[in-house]
Design a protein around this nucleic acid. Structure first.
Length: 586
RNA sequence: UGGGAGAUCGUCUAAUGGUAGGACAACAGACUCUGACUCUGUUUAUCUAGGUUCGAAUCCUAGUCUCCCAGCCA
């Protein structure tokens, strides 16, 4: 898989003239203008231990988007520094989701591609007296670290000789010591105000089989070390990450500078030998605030818990705010990208209202979704002045504003299904739909008048008997006659029964994981987030391909379920309702 | 009582010493064979207190509030 947007190395990086001008893009522009780089290189480095969620969309759109805008490239790097946590299922899922969002990577890399580089670099750090092997246990190390307000103390092993450290580290690598018995630590400053700089661990012993390297390594690098060197190895120019890594930047820079990969090609011969492109450079880390969305959960642990405890039907459940969940729900990549563009980039912590996402998806779908008709809560309407058994075929535009969507045939009949909520015996103030004795336009047909209301023994309305004004048929001059409302319908003889899944927000409070109300976050799961109804759809809707979206007029946007939909047994998911200024006024 | 970061309309976000602007939301109206879409209009903001300056969101001083950091996780 390679990026459709990756240019040749020699391509001039022309700054995009318009488009977003956030602080990161300003830095990129300035760096390019100053001739600091010939091309912009970014990366998206997920840990393959879970599926991507809406929060990742920002990181993806930023790193891949900036690379594309400035004619650079972006790598997808699976950060597999900690063995035993990865799962091939997640790796494939991540690749699928990034592609689905509309991005392709220059190269797919793994942090494990550089394990040999990391090891050699560690040897170099030891030789330069910048790292040492420590025998402290995890508990002891925590004690020695000090607290936020008190400085730490030097480990008793901090002053081992270079020769001793070299010997010990090589034996760690050879698998001579037990898990957790020793670490390799950076020799920095145990009194640093920034706790990340109090001799952070660079390597730990973990005799665990690794997804990609098998049992080749009994020691594994820590994130800060591996990440910084991976960025440098790949020639990343701008390493974009979230705010919590701000404190790590001095360590990031320390690793990059002390190892100095560009001037030590002997450290990365394994990468060259493996046939991977290697042009190490000094990367710059820039932090931005993560995307927080109300009514959403972005903790991997909690997302996994929703699946494990059966609160949802899987990682791709349409109620999940994982990317695959949003996809199955019918949200569009363009809608999500629009959200990211609207939200902007800064260093301020913020929470975006979930309604913004919904509106972005509506905006995209309004322009891209063909129109169809469906009735979800059917009430029979009979046109008594049409002959018994009358049917005809009408031609409808697929989109009200875009002729390129073409037309479709829609069977019309004497008996129709209309929406039960489009009729009221006692209408509220402002009502524009059908009432006894009243008139309304049947979408694309003409004006009908309700002559008679049939009810069952319990007083429930069972059928509306109406007359169709023949002068008002669509296309005739009489069609211009004004009536207050227009309602949708499906012809009874040709209606296709469909399962329609009506989704709503998974949580009933804006901040489900705040837990400041003494309630566990699972207490806020909305039991009505999924409602399944049987409805009637027009034949053209039933013929939809899985994952094809449409607007059911006056109801909302729907998608043919990518897993369950079949033309003979249609299954639709409601993506989002139409904006409704009528019901909102209460 | 440590270190790092951030405070601008309801919400995001611009303005980089020179008219506080945009988007979204809200409200009002127009249009409408979708109570959708679209269009028009309106409302609302520089954390506080001092100072520098002809001029401060921006610079200085002192406060206040919020977020992040004490994994051999990432």
């Amino acid at each position: 898989m390679s990026s459709p947007s990756s240019p040749a190395e020699s391509t001039t990086a022309a700054p995009a003239a318009d488009g977003p001008r956030d602080f990161i893009r300003q830095i990129v522009r300035e760096d390019l203008a100053a001739g600091k780089h010939v091309a912009i290189h970014t990366r998206f480095p997920p840990e393959p231990n879970g599926y991507l969620h809406i929060g990742h969309a920002k990181a993806i759109c930023l790193s891949f988007g900036i690379a594309r805008e400035f004619n650079g490239w972006c790598n997808l790097r699976l950060d597999d520094t900690n063995p035993g946590r990865e799962d091939p299922e997640f790796v494939q899922g991540i690749k699928d989701d990034v592609n689905w969002l509309g991005y392709g990577w220059h190269e797919l890399r793994h942090a494990s591609d550089y394990f040999d580089v990391f090891y050699r670099a560690a040897l170099k750090l030891i030789e330069d007296d910048l790292a040492y092997v420590d025998d402290l246990s995890a508990d002891e190390m925590r004690e020695y670290r000090g607290t936020l307000t008190e400085p730490g103390r030097n480990s008793p092993h901090r002053d081992r000789t270079v020769a001793e450290n070299l010997d010990l580290f090589k034996r760690m690598r050879a698998g001579e010591f037990a898990d957790g018995s020793r670490t390799l630590r950076a020799k920095m400053d145990m009194a640093a105000g920034n706790i990340n700089l109090r001799d952070p661990a660079l390597y730990r012993i973990r005799k665990v089989t690794h997804q990609n390297t098998g049992d080749a390594w009994p020691i594994y690098p820590m994130y800060d070390y591996a990440h910084a060197l991976s960025d440098a190895m790949e020639g990343i120019t701008h390493s974009l990450c979230t705010l919590e890594f701000e404190d790590h930047r001095p360590l990031y820079d320390w690793c990059v500078d002390k190892v100095d990969l560009p001037n030590h090609p002997e450290l990365w011969q394994s990468v060259v030998a493996a046939g991977l492109e290697a042009k190490p450079a000094k990367p710059r880390q820039i932090e931005f605030s993560r995307l927080n969305l109300s009514y959403c959960i972005t903790s991997k642990r909690k997302l996994a818990q929703l699946v494990a405890e059966g609160h949802v039907e899987g990682w791709d459940d349409p109620r999940m705010n994982t990317l695959r969940g949003l996809r199955r729900r019918g949200f569009t990549p363009a809608g999500i990208r629009l959200l990211i563009e609207r939200v902007g980039v800064s260093k301020q912590n913020s929470v975006i209202d979930y309604a913004i996402l919904e509106n972005c998806v509506r905006e995209d779908l309004d322009a891209t979704a063909p129109r169809r008709m469906a009735v979800l809560d059917p009430l029979k309407l009979t046109l008594v002045n049409l002959p018994e058994g009358h049917t005809e075929t009408l031609v409808f535009a697929n989109h009200p504003k875009d002729e390129s969507f073409g037309t479709r045939e829609l069977p019309f009949a004497r008996e129709l299904w209309i929406e039960r909520e489009d009729f009221a015996e006692v209408p509220p103030k402002g009502w524009k739909r059908l009432v006894p004795g009243g008139e309304v336009r049947l979408r694309g047909v003409g004006i009908v008048k309700c002559e008679e209301v049939l009810k069952d023994g319990a007083g429930i309305v069972t059928e509306l008997r109406c007359t169709l004004d023949p002068e008002s048929r669509s296309g005739l001059p009489g069609a211009d006659r004004k009536v207050k409302g227009t309602i949708h319908w499906v012809g009874v003889p040709h209606a296709v029964a469909a399962e329609v899944r009506l989704y709503d927000r998974l949580f009933d409070v804006a901040a489900p994981d705040a837990e400041d109300d003494g309630q566990p976050w699972t207490a806020h799961i909305n039991p009505d987030a999924k409602r399944v109804v049987q409805g009637w759809v027009e034949p053209a809707a039933a013929r939809a391909e899985p994952e094809q979206r449409c607007q059911f007029e006056r109801l909302g946007y729907f998608v043919a379920d990518r897993a369950d939909h079949r033309a003979e047994a249609p299954v639709f998911n409601r993506v989002v309702t139409l904006r409704d200024t009528w019901s909102k006024q209460g």
